[in-house]
């Protein structure tokens, strides 16, 4: 709050009213609903509900399908996060180094930020087309006969590739911005103190980028958990079959298509707890970040 804040009594309430009413209606109410429904079993014909305690949750731990998808989600998220961060960091460091054409490279490397995840899925479908996809041809040269939506592993692989492609630009923008905010005096001091460019990167640049990296780590995990829904749905052509899906996709499948509100709500709550933990971690990291800059 500002030192010389206005004293008006009703105006601030009026100003906050739209925001508060929207979040109460479309945030707190649904969140509460999810929490509540997770302890109830809904009648499939809509004739009421029965309190079942933790049954919806225990059902999850015993469902082999849920555990399988949880396992896939973990591997998927880690691969997407790791790969997109590594590639973006490499590109950002190079874009920060070159003198000529730096601006053009930046533009060419960042525009994919604006591509919708389902569109990335669509592009992946073309690249990995069974009959003539350029990427399918490429992997065929190594004797790998890629079969999207027929082979569990191949489908997961294509999902990772498309998700990484879509996520590189965001990481690139943040890394580059982080690199450029390293004071010139620090770089020049490092130049004098350390002759090896490689060692200079790992001992000076990388530690200074670490806060940005931590922040991006959380952003990327959240992205791969939630924002990839459209990408996965497009690759699966709306028909998962035996293919890998992420946990968010399963919430949608069970709750919206399968009408298993209780089970889907329990899954939502599990995800909420997961995101909550991640976000709290992020806030603590961001807080610590302030000391670096």
């Amino acid at each position: 709050m500002k030192r010389a804040a206005f004293d008006n009594r009703w105006l601030p309430i009026l100003l906050l009213l739209p925001q508060l009413s929207i979040i109460c209606l479309f945030f707190y109410w649904p969140a509460w609903q999810a929490l509540r429904s997770s302890f109830f079993l809904q009648d499939p014909f809509g004739f009421g509900e029965t309190f079942v305690g933790w049954a919806n949750y225990t059902r999850l731990w015993t469902s082999s399908e849920y555990l399988k998808n949880a396992g896939f989600t973990a591997i998927f998220s880690l691969s997407v996060t790791g790969l997109s961060l590594a590639i973006a960091l490499l590109l950002a460091v190079k874009a920060d180094t070159v003198l000529r054409g730096a601006k053009t490279y930046r533009t060419l490397l960042m525009w994919v930020y604006a591509v919708a995840p389902p569109m990335a899925g669509f592009i992946a479908l073309i690249l990995f087309n069974q009959r003539w996809g350029p990427m399918t041809d490429f992997f065929a040269m190594f004797g790998w006969d890629l079969q999207v939506r027929l082979d569990y592993f191949d489908t997961g692989f294509v999902m990772v590739v498309a998700s990484v492609w879509k996520q590189i630009p965001v990481n690139f923008i943040f890394f580059l911005s982080g690199l450029q905010s390293i004071p010139r005096a620090v770089r020049e001091a490092a130049l004098i103190d350390n002759a090896s460019g490689f060692s200079r990167f790992w001992t000076v640049t990388f530690p200074l980028l670490a806060p940005t990296g931590f922040f991006l780590l959380i952003i990327n995990i959240t992205y791969s958990l939630f924002d990839t829904f459209g990408l996965i749905d497009t690759i699966l052509r709306n028909n998962p079959g035996d293919n890998p899906v992420t946990l968010v996709y399963q919430v949608y499948l069970d709750g919206f298509r399968g009408q298993d509100i209780g089970g889907s709500s329990a899954q939502s709550v599990v995800l909420m707890v997961l995101v909550l933990a991640l976000t709290i971690m992020q806030f603590r990291l961001v807080e610590r970040r302030i000391h670096y800059t």
Binding site: P30, Q33, A34, F226, V251, Y252, G255, S265, L271, M272
Partner: peptide, 8 residues
């Protein structure tokens, strides 16, 4: 995010 409370 919206996705975790999408069904309600």
């Amino acid at each position: 995010p919206l996705e975790v409370r999408i069904v309600p």
